[in-house]
């Protein structure tokens, strides 16, 4: 399964005047819904007696994420280490992940989350599946593997679509696919004994075109909500309620 090490979106600082975003002090974490994906992948791997490999592509700091992924149930982890300062878009990420998946032997199934907390682009999974030349099944909330057949239930708007395909396959999942239990102390301690590997991106032998971003970011600005932020903090509860109801009535939003 693939996971992403991202900045905690709630800790980005936005300068209200310039809208400049400062992510330097934001904690890093495994993208939220990747935690559900790890659990779904753990269950799927267990059902067919397979090893679960966690794979991530990111800067040197993603190393911390490896420990978290191992604690959450990944059997071993591979961290493809991005070059410092190089920007990766979906094109680069998919090429890197595809190259690393090919280096692992006998991969039957790759799970990605439908979107990451930072980009939520629905991009890496389907791109990766296409580069591997595998069947792609997206937006999955239930999956089972029997023999060499994958069966998955996709959420398609108001409908649920059940599909089947042969392995190997690439599946993207939504968080409903599994809960994301917080690892216990034993799992956290056990993670230190599990194997992990760091692979410099240069070792993958990819051509320059595959590791050069197709897009250039020319601007990245924080979103500042244009809300009034009337704070009702003081006085008795009834006074706050009266002030609120008067305000809402004036806004014309009460029936």
């Amino acid at each position: 399964m693939c996971f992403k090490w991202v900045a905690a979106e709630g800790e980005l600082r936005v300068d209200p005047a310039t809208r400049a975003v400062d992510a330097s002090s934001a904690r890093r974490k495994i993208s939220d819904y990747d935690r559900n994906t790890i659990e779904a992948a753990r269950v799927a791997a267990g059902s067919i007696g397979s090893e679960l490999v966690g794979l991530t592509f990111g800067g040197p700091d993603a190393r911390t994420g490896i420990k978290d992924a191992l604690a959450r149930g990944v059997d071993r982890a591979v961290h493809v280490v991005a070059d410092e300062g190089a920007r990766a878009d979906g094109h680069v990420t998919a090429h890197v992940l595809a190259a690393q998946v090919r280096r692992l032997e006998d991969v039957d199934l790759v799970l990605c989350t439908e979107g990451a907390s930072d980009t939520y682009a629905h991009e890496t999974g389907p791109r990766l599946g296409e580069l591997l030349g595998w069947p792609v099944v997206t937006n999955v909330r239930e999956l089972t593997v029997e023999g060499r057949t994958l069966r998955a239930v996709r959420v398609l708007g108001a409908d649920l679509e059940t599909v089947e395909c042969d392995l190997p396959a690439l599946v993207t999942v939504v968080p409903e696919v599994a809960p994301a239990p917080i690892p216990g102390l034993r799992s956290v301690l056990g993670a230190a004994k599990k194997p992990s590997e760091q692979v410099p991106v240069a070792d993958l032998g990819l051509p320059a075109g595959a590791v050069t971003a197709r897009t250039t970011v020319t601007s990245f600005l924080g979103y500042v909500a244009a809300r009034r932020r009337v704070v009702l903090a003081d006085g008795a509860a009834q006074d706050k309620v009266d002030a609120l109801v008067a305000g809402l009535a004036q806004d014309g939003v009460l029936r």
Binding site: H91, H122, P126, R127, L128, E130, L131, L156
Partner: peptide, 18 residues
Amino acid sequence: VTGWEVGARVAALLDSAL
């Protein structure tokens, strides 16, 4: 849901931006 998948896979086949 379909379009997200189609768009990303076409971009992969074209080796293009998305």
